[in-house]
Design a protein around this nucleic acid. Structure first.
Lengths: 117, 117
DNA sequence: ACGATGTACAACCATTAGGTTGTACAATGA
DNA sequence: TCATTGTACAACCTAATGGTTGTACATCGT
Protein backbone atom coordinates (compact mmCIF):
# COMPACT_ATOMS: atom_id res chain seq x y z
CA UNK A 1 0.00 0.00 0.00
CA UNK A 2 1.22 3.45 -0.85
CA UNK A 3 1.77 5.77 2.10
CA UNK A 4 1.09 9.42 1.41
CA UNK A 5 3.31 11.85 3.20
CA UNK A 6 2.21 15.32 2.32
CA UNK A 7 4.52 17.49 4.36
CA UNK A 8 7.31 17.22 6.87
CA UNK A 9 5.42 17.89 10.09
CA UNK A 10 2.57 15.66 9.08
CA UNK A 11 0.76 12.97 10.97
CA UNK A 12 1.75 9.33 10.65
CA UNK A 13 -0.70 6.84 9.22
CA UNK A 14 -1.32 5.42 12.69
CA UNK A 15 -2.08 8.89 14.03
CA UNK A 16 -4.50 9.53 11.20
CA UNK A 17 -6.15 6.19 11.97
CA UNK A 18 -6.62 7.16 15.61
CA UNK A 19 -7.94 10.62 14.81
CA UNK A 20 -10.60 9.46 12.39
CA UNK A 21 -11.49 6.59 14.68
CA UNK A 22 -11.96 9.10 17.48
CA UNK A 23 -14.26 11.16 15.28
CA UNK A 24 -16.31 8.12 14.34
CA UNK A 25 -18.44 8.25 17.48
CA UNK A 26 -21.15 10.74 18.33
CA UNK A 27 -20.38 10.83 22.04
CA UNK A 28 -16.75 11.60 21.32
CA UNK A 29 -17.62 14.32 18.82
CA UNK A 30 -19.87 15.81 21.46
CA UNK A 31 -17.13 15.66 24.08
CA UNK A 32 -14.82 17.41 21.68
CA UNK A 33 -17.48 19.97 21.07
CA UNK A 34 -18.07 20.65 24.72
CA UNK A 35 -14.40 20.86 25.62
CA UNK A 36 -13.80 23.39 22.88
CA UNK A 37 -15.70 26.00 24.83
CA UNK A 38 -14.36 25.34 28.25
CA UNK A 39 -12.54 22.81 30.32
CA UNK A 40 -14.82 20.12 31.67
CA UNK A 41 -14.16 17.46 34.29
CA UNK A 42 -14.74 13.80 33.45
CA UNK A 43 -17.67 13.60 35.82
CA UNK A 44 -18.98 16.83 34.36
CA UNK A 45 -18.97 15.10 31.00
CA UNK A 46 -20.32 11.86 32.43
CA UNK A 47 -23.42 13.65 33.68
CA UNK A 48 -24.25 14.62 30.09
CA UNK A 49 -24.48 11.13 28.70
CA UNK A 50 -26.59 8.13 29.39
CA UNK A 51 -23.71 5.85 30.21
CA UNK A 52 -21.43 5.06 33.10
CA UNK A 53 -18.59 7.24 34.32
CA UNK A 54 -16.12 4.55 33.25
CA UNK A 55 -17.51 4.53 29.70
CA UNK A 56 -17.04 8.28 29.40
CA UNK A 57 -13.57 7.90 30.85
CA UNK A 58 -12.77 5.48 28.05
CA UNK A 59 -14.07 7.83 25.39
CA UNK A 60 -11.87 10.57 26.79
CA UNK A 61 -8.92 8.17 26.74
CA UNK A 62 -9.55 7.41 23.06
CA UNK A 63 -9.57 11.09 22.24
CA UNK A 64 -6.52 11.76 24.32
CA UNK A 65 -4.65 8.97 22.51
CA UNK A 66 -5.65 10.63 19.24
CA UNK A 67 -4.30 13.92 20.51
CA UNK A 68 -7.67 15.60 20.22
CA UNK A 69 -7.91 16.51 23.89
CA UNK A 70 -5.55 16.99 26.79
CA UNK A 71 -6.13 16.40 30.49
CA UNK A 72 -4.72 18.17 33.50
CA UNK A 73 -5.44 17.98 37.19
CA UNK A 74 -7.13 20.50 39.40
CA UNK A 75 -7.60 19.13 42.85
CA UNK A 76 -9.34 15.80 42.56
CA UNK A 77 -10.71 16.69 39.15
CA UNK A 78 -9.25 15.93 35.75
CA UNK A 79 -10.11 18.73 33.41
CA UNK A 80 -10.46 17.89 29.74
CA UNK A 81 -9.65 20.47 27.13
CA UNK A 82 -9.80 20.19 23.34
CA UNK A 83 -6.48 20.39 21.55
CA UNK A 84 -6.83 22.88 18.68
CA UNK A 85 -3.66 21.78 16.93
CA UNK A 86 -4.87 18.30 16.10
CA UNK A 87 -8.19 19.50 14.80
CA UNK A 88 -6.45 22.05 12.63
CA UNK A 89 -4.18 19.35 11.24
CA UNK A 90 -7.10 17.07 10.58
CA UNK A 91 -8.97 19.79 8.80
CA UNK A 92 -5.97 20.65 6.65
CA UNK A 93 -5.50 16.97 5.88
CA UNK A 94 -9.05 16.79 4.58
CA UNK A 95 -8.62 20.06 2.74
CA UNK A 96 -5.51 18.73 1.04
CA UNK A 97 -7.35 15.56 0.11
CA UNK A 98 -10.10 17.61 -1.36
CA UNK A 99 -7.96 20.03 -3.32
CA UNK A 100 -6.00 17.18 -4.83
CA UNK A 101 -9.28 15.53 -5.52
CA UNK A 102 -10.63 18.57 -7.32
CA UNK A 103 -7.63 18.61 -9.59
CA UNK A 104 -8.02 14.95 -10.30
CA UNK A 105 -11.70 15.33 -10.94
CA UNK A 106 -11.03 17.73 -13.76
CA UNK A 107 -9.01 15.03 -15.42
CA UNK A 108 -11.68 12.45 -14.63
CA UNK A 109 -14.32 14.71 -16.16
CA UNK A 110 -12.20 14.94 -19.28
CA UNK A 111 -11.98 11.16 -19.41
CA UNK A 112 -15.72 10.78 -19.02
CA UNK A 113 -16.31 13.34 -21.73
CA UNK A 114 -14.08 11.25 -24.00
CA UNK A 115 -16.10 8.16 -23.11
CA UNK A 116 -19.31 9.90 -24.07
CA UNK A 117 -18.15 10.59 -27.60
CA UNK B 1 -26.29 13.83 24.13
CA UNK B 2 -26.69 16.90 22.05
CA UNK B 3 -27.03 16.36 18.31
CA UNK B 4 -25.60 19.12 16.18
CA UNK B 5 -27.45 19.82 12.98
CA UNK B 6 -25.65 22.51 11.12
CA UNK B 7 -27.64 22.90 7.96
CA UNK B 8 -30.65 21.44 6.24
CA UNK B 9 -28.94 19.13 3.74
CA UNK B 10 -26.51 17.86 6.31
CA UNK B 11 -25.43 14.37 7.14
CA UNK B 12 -27.09 12.41 9.92
CA UNK B 13 -25.06 11.37 12.94
CA UNK B 14 -25.01 7.79 11.69
CA UNK B 15 -23.72 8.91 8.30
CA UNK B 16 -20.97 10.93 9.95
CA UNK B 17 -20.06 7.88 12.04
CA UNK B 18 -19.74 5.75 8.91
CA UNK B 19 -17.72 8.33 7.03
CA UNK B 20 -15.14 8.84 9.75
CA UNK B 21 -15.01 5.10 10.39
CA UNK B 22 -14.31 4.60 6.69
CA UNK B 23 -11.48 7.10 6.86
CA UNK B 24 -9.97 5.42 9.90
CA UNK B 25 -8.14 2.78 7.90
CA UNK B 26 -5.09 3.24 5.71
CA UNK B 27 -6.14 0.72 3.09
CA UNK B 28 -9.47 2.45 2.70
CA UNK B 29 -7.88 5.88 2.44
CA UNK B 30 -5.62 4.47 -0.25
CA UNK B 31 -8.56 2.97 -2.11
CA UNK B 32 -10.28 6.32 -1.99
CA UNK B 33 -7.11 7.93 -3.23
CA UNK B 34 -6.74 5.56 -6.16
CA UNK B 35 -10.36 5.74 -7.22
CA UNK B 36 -10.22 9.51 -7.28
CA UNK B 37 -8.03 9.41 -10.36
CA UNK B 38 -9.76 6.70 -12.28
CA UNK B 39 -12.22 3.89 -11.96
CA UNK B 40 -10.62 0.71 -10.69
CA UNK B 41 -12.02 -2.81 -10.53
CA UNK B 42 -12.09 -4.67 -7.24
CA UNK B 43 -9.47 -7.12 -8.42
CA UNK B 44 -7.42 -4.20 -9.70
CA UNK B 45 -7.48 -2.85 -6.18
CA UNK B 46 -6.92 -6.27 -4.64
CA UNK B 47 -3.63 -6.63 -6.54
CA UNK B 48 -2.32 -3.52 -4.78
CA UNK B 49 -2.65 -4.80 -1.25
CA UNK B 50 -1.21 -7.66 0.69
CA UNK B 51 -4.55 -9.16 1.57
CA UNK B 52 -7.19 -11.36 0.02
CA UNK B 53 -9.66 -10.30 -2.62
CA UNK B 54 -12.48 -10.78 -0.14
CA UNK B 55 -10.83 -8.45 2.37
CA UNK B 56 -10.54 -5.71 -0.25
CA UNK B 57 -14.13 -6.36 -1.23
CA UNK B 58 -15.13 -5.71 2.37
CA UNK B 59 -13.18 -2.47 2.52
CA UNK B 60 -14.92 -1.30 -0.63
CA UNK B 61 -18.27 -2.25 0.91
CA UNK B 62 -17.48 -0.14 3.99
CA UNK B 63 -16.67 2.84 1.83
CA UNK B 64 -19.71 2.32 -0.32
CA UNK B 65 -21.93 2.22 2.78
CA UNK B 66 -20.33 5.50 3.84
CA UNK B 67 -21.12 6.97 0.44
CA UNK B 68 -17.47 7.62 -0.30
CA UNK B 69 -17.39 5.46 -3.41
CA UNK B 70 -19.86 4.09 -5.91
CA UNK B 71 -19.75 0.88 -7.90
CA UNK B 72 -21.04 0.07 -11.35
CA UNK B 73 -20.69 -2.91 -13.63
CA UNK B 74 -18.77 -3.24 -16.84
CA UNK B 75 -18.89 -6.78 -18.08
CA UNK B 76 -17.80 -9.03 -15.27
CA UNK B 77 -15.98 -6.23 -13.51
CA UNK B 78 -17.24 -3.91 -10.80
CA UNK B 79 -15.65 -0.55 -11.22
CA UNK B 80 -15.15 1.54 -8.12
CA UNK B 81 -15.22 5.29 -8.33
CA UNK B 82 -14.77 7.86 -5.58
CA UNK B 83 -17.82 9.99 -4.82
CA UNK B 84 -16.74 13.64 -4.71
CA UNK B 85 -19.89 14.82 -3.01
CA UNK B 86 -19.33 12.94 0.23
CA UNK B 87 -15.73 14.03 0.52
CA UNK B 88 -16.75 17.62 -0.06
CA UNK B 89 -19.38 17.33 2.65
CA UNK B 90 -16.89 15.79 5.04
CA UNK B 91 -14.39 18.49 4.39
CA UNK B 92 -16.96 21.20 4.94
CA UNK B 93 -18.07 19.48 8.13
CA UNK B 94 -14.52 19.63 9.45
CA UNK B 95 -14.14 23.19 8.25
CA UNK B 96 -17.29 24.17 10.10
CA UNK B 97 -16.02 22.44 13.22
CA UNK B 98 -12.78 24.30 12.95
CA UNK B 99 -14.23 27.75 12.32
CA UNK B 100 -16.55 27.40 15.29
CA UNK B 101 -13.61 26.17 17.24
CA UNK B 102 -11.54 29.18 16.32
CA UNK B 103 -14.23 31.47 17.60
CA UNK B 104 -14.49 29.50 20.79
CA UNK B 105 -10.77 29.47 21.26
CA UNK B 106 -10.70 33.21 21.43
CA UNK B 107 -13.02 33.01 24.40
CA UNK B 108 -11.01 30.16 25.90
CA UNK B 109 -7.84 32.19 25.52
CA UNK B 110 -9.50 34.99 27.40
CA UNK B 111 -10.43 32.59 30.18
CA UNK B 112 -6.90 31.25 30.43
CA UNK B 113 -5.52 34.77 30.55
CA UNK B 114 -7.82 35.40 33.50
CA UNK B 115 -6.53 32.24 35.18
CA UNK B 116 -2.95 33.40 34.80
CA UNK B 117 -3.58 36.56 36.78
C1' DA C 1 -11.81 12.22 61.46
C1' DC C 2 -14.88 10.86 58.10
C1' DG C 3 -18.38 10.70 54.56
C1' DA C 4 -18.94 12.34 49.90
C1' DT C 5 -16.98 13.25 45.49
C1' DG C 6 -13.86 12.45 41.44
C1' DT C 7 -10.87 9.44 39.38
C1' DA C 8 -8.31 5.19 37.87
C1' DC C 9 -8.25 0.68 36.70
C1' DA C 10 -9.30 -4.25 36.39
C1' DA C 11 -12.38 -7.80 35.01
C1' DC C 12 -15.89 -9.09 32.38
C1' DC C 13 -19.33 -9.34 28.43
C1' DA C 14 -21.53 -8.75 23.75
C1' DT C 15 -20.92 -6.95 19.37
C1' DT C 16 -18.28 -5.34 15.57
C1' DA C 17 -14.19 -5.23 12.57
C1' DG C 18 -10.84 -7.10 9.81
C1' DG C 19 -9.03 -10.82 8.19
C1' DT C 20 -9.16 -15.78 6.27
C1' DT C 21 -10.82 -19.85 3.16
C1' DG C 22 -14.18 -22.07 0.42
C1' DT C 23 -17.99 -22.27 -2.74
C1' DA C 24 -20.95 -20.66 -6.38
C1' DC C 25 -21.73 -18.26 -10.43
C1' DA C 26 -21.49 -14.95 -14.46
C1' DA C 27 -18.75 -13.10 -18.22
C1' DT C 28 -14.83 -13.61 -21.22
C1' DG C 29 -11.81 -15.55 -24.68
C1' DA C 30 -9.56 -19.19 -27.19
C1' DT D 1 -17.26 -25.76 -25.10
C1' DC D 2 -14.49 -25.01 -21.40
C1' DA D 3 -10.80 -23.04 -18.70
C1' DT D 4 -9.93 -18.47 -16.83
C1' DT D 5 -11.14 -14.30 -14.71
C1' DG D 6 -13.93 -11.28 -11.67
C1' DT D 7 -17.23 -11.14 -8.33
C1' DA D 8 -20.41 -12.32 -4.42
C1' DC D 9 -21.20 -14.37 -0.27
C1' DA D 10 -21.14 -17.51 3.72
C1' DA D 11 -18.67 -19.40 7.52
C1' DC D 12 -15.27 -18.92 10.50
C1' DC D 13 -11.47 -16.90 13.63
C1' DT D 14 -9.25 -13.36 16.46
C1' DA D 15 -8.75 -8.92 18.16
C1' DA D 16 -10.64 -4.56 19.18
C1' DT D 17 -14.70 -1.66 20.71
C1' DG D 18 -17.98 -0.04 23.70
C1' DG D 19 -20.25 -0.95 27.35
C1' DT D 20 -20.85 -2.74 32.33
C1' DT D 21 -19.75 -3.40 37.60
C1' DG D 22 -16.62 -3.46 41.36
C1' DT D 23 -12.70 -1.96 43.92
C1' DA D 24 -9.20 1.16 45.43
C1' DC D 25 -7.59 5.57 46.35
C1' DA D 26 -7.00 10.66 46.66
C1' DT D 27 -9.17 15.00 47.65
C1' DC D 28 -12.55 17.88 49.54
C1' DG D 29 -15.85 19.79 52.98
C1' DT D 30 -17.75 19.61 57.51
Amino acid sequence: MVVHRHSADDLTEAEVDRIFRAFADGTRRDILWRTMTSEVSISGLANSYDMSFAAVQKHVAVMEAAGLVTKHSRGRQRLVRANPETLARTQSLLARYESLWRRRIERLDALLADDAE
